[in-house]
Design a protein around this nucleic acid. Structure first.
Length: 609
DNA sequence: GCCGTTTTCGGCCCGACTGTTTTCAGTCG
């Protein structure tokens, strides 16, 4: 078989969007246009690489990709191009698709500008458009005016400066910006409630724009208050009482949507999405003769039917005949059917998702103990991290620094360093036990002596056999040679996992968000091995990893594999980031029983050792 | 072009906002 071409999800999404735009200006059926747009968005938001899915023959499992688009993408991966797409694009000037990237310019205006200003080639197109706008040649075009010309210039400048945030922000950043803004909003007594919406409420690994909903009886007043938020750089859109849109000083776009309390539930539901969830929910409702909107539910068969309003989401879902669905799983992946089964008291309904409060300990921490590691050392001491964990009410902690670097140390030095750490940890454990006995109350936090050990390309672990005697357990992980093919990588990982002390496979796909794709593994084999040999897969809560990704979490859970949700903290303050790992778990339909560090200490010890 | 608990045909979300317009078109989410 000839070598396949690689296209990123982003590139594929752009191709599909361009096809949609081409169809739109050609006056094609708007539903076909929408279908391509939907497919593009779905590809963009897909948590796995389409190339991988294509390899596995699973392209049509992506929502919005059916027979036709799948076959076009197949052609794309095999040959690097799609004849049909080239046909569609043939008559259209390439500059059109460049102009479309300017905010406020869609396919129609883009084509209009291209034709009226006669800028057809892609090269220098934006510069020529800018010049034309500056010379007042845009405002005289039909349908354009002074303001649009001004906006166009501003848009071009933003594009040139690279200010258009196409890149999505990491979840923790969106989460913290939103929290800060919500805290500000709630200071206003007219604000009844405020929540994040969209992908942030569903806790995706990366977030496009921040959307916030507000419940209030005084929308105008609250809207004015919102625009006074000190961190706003620019107001983009100034609705009176429904929608406000701003850009923060830090560059992120924030939308705020206001609603009266009596219909807040429907609004919250509507804008939480996902799009696919809402589409499925709407068609489900239509089957029952109901039509959904952000304002509520109305009967389709009754003329001039009144819209029934819903103060809460729970009531909204209940009226549709289903249980309330946690936002994290509203992705159009069977949750509606599951919620219906739950409401009917049947088995196999919604999962009882794991919660942060279920977590009893963290098994992956990097202290600043000078173990002279191959990778980054932590920044906080054992004591600092233990204190933080105690504040969180944890029962146990595992210190798992990286193994001492192999190139810088002799085997004996590696053994000595690991022993030294175990001696020190024992002292700390002993003295804290003694202190507690004296005060006589709480059980002290149990400290495990672990290590994060590299799996060498050969599958060997990076510390000598003798060093393992000092460890309670090892998290093993791939930190080098990411380029091995799927077969070799799977063999490597399985061999690493077969060591009796190797209990947890750390950040299993090796992905770093926006930096590198993970390597490929034969997940069926990995799941099978974990299940048979009592090994566990990690969900690393590190904001730029969130690995396992949610879709693999769901597969692991369905296969019966148990998970460990760890913070992988490199300083004490990061321990609290574990909540993002819980979010990933929830998105993967994980229940408490699927997670080993929800177990109390004695039960955990039973399965870990 | 996609999709399926009324459907393999016939549906497919639509409202807010803005600018250019005198009642609407384009963009966006």
């Amino acid at each position: 078989m000839p070598k396949a071409k690689f296209f990123t999800n982003q590139e594929i999404a752009e191709i599909l969007r361009n096809i949609a735009a081409a169809y739109e200006v050609k006056g094609e059926d708007l539903f076909r246009v929408a279908a391509y747009q939907r497919a593009a968005a779905s590809v963009e938001h897909s948590t796995s690489q389409l190339k991988d899915l294509w390899d596995e023959g699973k392209l049509d499992e992506v929502p919005g990709i059916g027979k036709s688009i799948a076959s076009y993408l197949d052609e794309l991966f095999r040959t690097g191009k799609v004849k049909h797409f080239e046909q569609v694009m043939k008559a259209l000037p390439p500059s059109m698709f460049v102009f479309e990237k300017i905010p406020g310019v869609g396919p129609k205006r883009a084509l209009e500008l291209v034709q009226k200003l006669n800028i057809t080639s892609e090269k220098g197109a934006v510069k020529r458009l800018k010049k034309a706008a500056k010379e007042g040649k845009v405002r005289v075009l039909e349908g354009f005016g002074e303001k649009l010309e001004e906006d166009l210039l501003a848009g071009i400048e933003a594009l040139e400066k690279g200010e258009l945030k196409t890149a999505r922000m990491p979840l923790y950043l969106a989460d913290s910006l939103a929290r800060e803004l919500i805290a500000y909003l709630k200071k206003n007594p007219k604000v009844v409630e405020a929540h994040p919406l969209g992908s942030l409420r569903r806790m995706l690994a990366t977030i496009g724009d921040i959307d916030i909903s507000v419940s209030t009886e005084n929308p105008k007043e609250v809207m004015e208050y919102f625009f006074k938020y000190p961190k706003i750089k620019k107001v983009v859109s100034k609705g009176e009482e429904a929608l406000g849109r701003v850009v923060l000083e830090s560059g992120q776009q924030v939308d705020i949507r206001l609603s009266l309390p009596q219909r807040y539930g429907a609004m919250l539901q509507y804008f939480t999405g996902s799009k696919q969830h809402n589409i499925n929910l709407r068609s489900y409702a239509l089957g029952k003769g109901l039509s959904l909107s952000e304002y509520g539910i109305k009967k389709t068969k009754v003329k001039k039917a009144e819209i029934k309003a819903y103060p809460t989401e729970e009531e909204f879902y209940h009226d549709l005949g289903m249980e309330w669905i946690p936002p994290e799983i509203r992705e159009g992946r069977g949750e509606i059917e599951a919620a219906e089964r739950t409401a009917q008291g049947k088995a196999d309904g919604l999962p009882d998702l794991v919660e942060l409060k279920d977590i009893k300990g963290d098994l992956h921490l990097h202290s600043n103990f000078p173990i002279e590691p191959s990778h980054d050392l932590g920044a906080s001491s054992f004591e600092e991290m233990i204190r933080t964990a105690e504040e969180l009410g944890y029962q146990y902690l595992g210190f798992t620094e990286h193994n001492p670097s192999v190139s810088q140390h002799s085997l004996q030095q590696i053994i000595d360093l690991i022993r030294k750490k175990s001696v020190l940890l024992e002292e700390i454990s002993y003295s804290s036990e003694r202190a507690v006995k004296k005060r006589g109350k709480k059980i002290p936090i149990k400290i495990f002596n672990g290590l994060e050990v590299d799996i060498n390309p050969s599958g060997e672990l990076a510390i000598p056999e003798k060093a393992f005697q000092y460890l309670d357990y090892a998290i093993i992980a791939v930190h080098s040679s990411f380029g091995l093919n799927r077969e070799k990588m799977t063999k490597r990982v399985l061999q690493g996992l077969s060591h009796p002390k190797a209990k947890i496979l750390g950040h299993p796909t090796g992905r770093v968000i926006d930096v590198r794709e993970g390597y490929e593994l034969d997940w069926d084999k990995i799941f099978d091995f974990c299940l048979k040999k009592g090994k566990f897969l990690e969900i690393s809560a590190l904001p730029n990893r969130l690995d396992l990704p949610d879709f693999l979490v769901r597969e692991a859970v369905e296969a019966g594999v148990k998970l460990a949700i760890n913070s992988d903290s490199h300083e004490a303050s990061q321990i609290a980031l574990l909540k993002y790992g819980v979010a990933v778990a929830r998105r993967g339909w994980t229940e408490k029983k699927n997670v080993i560090n929800t177990l109390p200490l004695n039960k955990l010890s039973d399965i870990l050792f």
